[in-house]
Design a protein around this nucleic acid. Structure first.
Length: 493
RNA sequence: GGUUCCGUGGCCGAGUGGCUAGGCAGUGCUCUGCAAAAGCAUCUACAUCAGUUCGAAUCUGAUCGGAACCUCCA
């Protein structure tokens, strides 16, 4: 637990690793931008949420009491800020000819199922935008009262120009609005409601056809997208909280706007540590629905996709992601996924071996090396690939003990078991996949009979029968693995 | 065009001034009736050019190539 003082987090705001000191230890506030539930989450989204799942898990492991808030955006995510900007969910509802709230429910369910498959721990609070309309209206009022927003024709816009006179709009993304102004001047002359190109809607007037809409001091409308995160993070974590996470692509404008809104409303920069996860790419290009290069999780698992050679389990994919740093892009490929599949297997069988290790008087190996190095890796901005590398070094040790080249003491073994259990299962969130095909006992019993028959043939040196059984099973995708005095089997499609 | 970032061995990916991760594949070996599986060992490297330095993949500059954001996106 002494390591809990040594966690460094890369803070996107200052572009440097900083020692993590919670505002009110042992409590930690963690906010992560959740999905807009208008379509299926794809693998790139999963990667992002996985990054913060590990952050949450590790903070918890370190003994912090983490309140983890991840929102569901169920209204207000406009296609754009122009006058005819449409709500994503409304649009989808019209396409599918169902209620917007049915869309929300359908894709919220899908999101939770998916995230569950990848063994992500549910957040402490999962608030929705529609559940916080009143708070959003109140925040808009505070912003207006402080002079940082204006109303035009039933919509309210954040006054970026005014804000940047007093504060630094663009400090997170490194943007300078003066410079941007020159390039974007043309798009200003469209007779829009906005006074300034960088202004963004915090309340948007609703058309008569719109189904999801609310009354407000400015008329019937919907809240702006950026606003919900400001409101919900403030409500559940306070005006100032520890960590805010999200994908790189949210840095601008979304997170920049969040900062501006909070400062404009309450005079405080809300977030102490900003964390941004990088993108999943396919052939070097960001995975996105519009490019037709995204995988849905079930396609990945079944392998039913033109870019996939075969199916991969959710755990393989989880491990694959963890073998890369969250701040780097990771490029999808069949080869890399296959490598991850085997690597994960090696790690897991190492743990199995660990649990069956015989102990000796003394240890000839230094388990503290493995423990401290893998801990240091995670303390270094959640460096999971490095931690995994050290865990593999440990597997080498474990195997060496197993073949009696090295020895381990009782207390060392206990410690090592505990460490692997914590790191692999609790922090990295990997699970040993269900062995063999099912919980059903029949296949297991049948296989036992077959294997016994084959072993009898082997004892009688009847190799042709033994090989025949092996070959026939292989055709059914059942693989026999002979060990010294026993045989195991594995079903792999 | 602006902002930010990247280019590491056959592949994936750490490292960020000297001690040259790890996984997968390859090769050799052990085990084995054979094969597979498993284990052990091991090879191939830092985009290019110039500079700083006793010393650079690591710092600086230039060049080439790639990406993300600047418009909805995790």
């Amino acid at each position: 637990m002494s390591e809990s003082n040594n966690l460094y987090i890369y803070n996107s705001l200052r572009k440097t690793k900083e020692l993590f000191k919670p505002l009110n230890p042992p409590f930690v506030g963690l906010y992560v931008c959740g999905p807009t539930v208008y379509s299926d989450v794809h693998l790139g989204n999963v990667r992002s949420f996985l990054t913060f799942d590990v952050v949450y898990r590790y903070l918890t492991y370190l003994g912090y009491n983490v309140r983890y808030v991840r929102n569901i955006t169920d209204v207000g995510h406009l296609l754009n800020d122009s006058d005819d900007g449409d709500d994503k969910i409304e649009k989808r509802a019209r396409l599918e000819k169902i209620e917007p709230m049915e869309i929300v429910q359908k894709y919220t369910n899908g999101f939770r199922d998916t995230v569950n498959q990848f063994n992500l721990i549910p957040p402490s609070i999962e608030p929705t935008a529609t559940g916080h309309i009143i708070e959003q209206i109140e925040m808009i009022e505070r912003i207006i009262n402080n002079g940082f927003a204006y109303e035009v024709n039933g919509s309210v816009y954040f006054d970026v120009k005014k804000y940047s006179e007093k504060y630094n709009y663009g400090e997170l993304s490194g943007r300078k609005i003066e410079e941007q102004l020159e390039q974007t001047r043309e798009s200003l002359e469209g007779g829009q409601e906005k006074r300034f190109f960088a202004d963004f809607a915090i309340w948007k007037k609703a058309s008569t056809e719109t189904i999801m809409k609310w009354d407000s001091p400015w008329g019937i409308g919907v809240p702006g997208w950026h606003l919900e995160c400001s409101v919900m993070s403030t409500k559940y974590l306070g005006q100032k909280f520890d960590i805010h996470g999200g994908g790189m692509d949210l840095k601008f404008p979304h997170h920049e706007c969040e900062i501006a809104q909070s400062v404009a409303a309450d005079g405080k920069a809300p977030v102490r540590y900003w964390m941004h996860g990088n993108m999943l790419t396919v052939n070097g290009t960001k995975m996105s629905k519009s490019l037709n290069n995204s995988f849905l999780p079930h396609e990945l698992i079944s392998g039913d996709h033109p870019l996939l050679e075969k199916g991969y389990t959710a755990m393989t994919v989880r491990f694959f992601f963890l073998q890369a740093n969250y701040k780097s892009t990771v490029d999808f490929s069949n080869e890399a996924l296959k490598a991850a599949e085997k690597g994960l297997k090696r790690l897991m069988s190492g743990i199995e071996t660990l649990n069956q290790l015989e102990t000796s008087e003394n240890s000839t190996i230094d388990i503290n090396l493995i423990i401290s190095k893998s801990t240091q890796s995670l303390n270094d901005d959640f460096n999971t690939p490095m931690a995994i590398a050290h865990l593999f070094d440990g597997v080498k040790m474990i195997n060496s003990i197993n073949v009696e080249k090295d020895t381990i003491s009782v207390s060392d073994l206990e410690q090592l078991k505990k460490h692997y259990s914590s790191f692999v299962f609790d922090i990295l969130g990997l699970t040993s996949e269900e062995n063999n095909s099912s919980d059903d006992e029949l296949p297991n019993d049948l296989m036992e009979i077959i294997i016994n028959l084959r072993n009898q043939s082997k004892e009688n040196k009847d190799w042709s029968t033994a090989d025949l059984i092996r070959d026939k099973l292989k055709k059914l995708s059942i693989y026999i693995k002979d060990a010294k005095d026993s045989s195991t089997w594995e079903y792999e499609k």
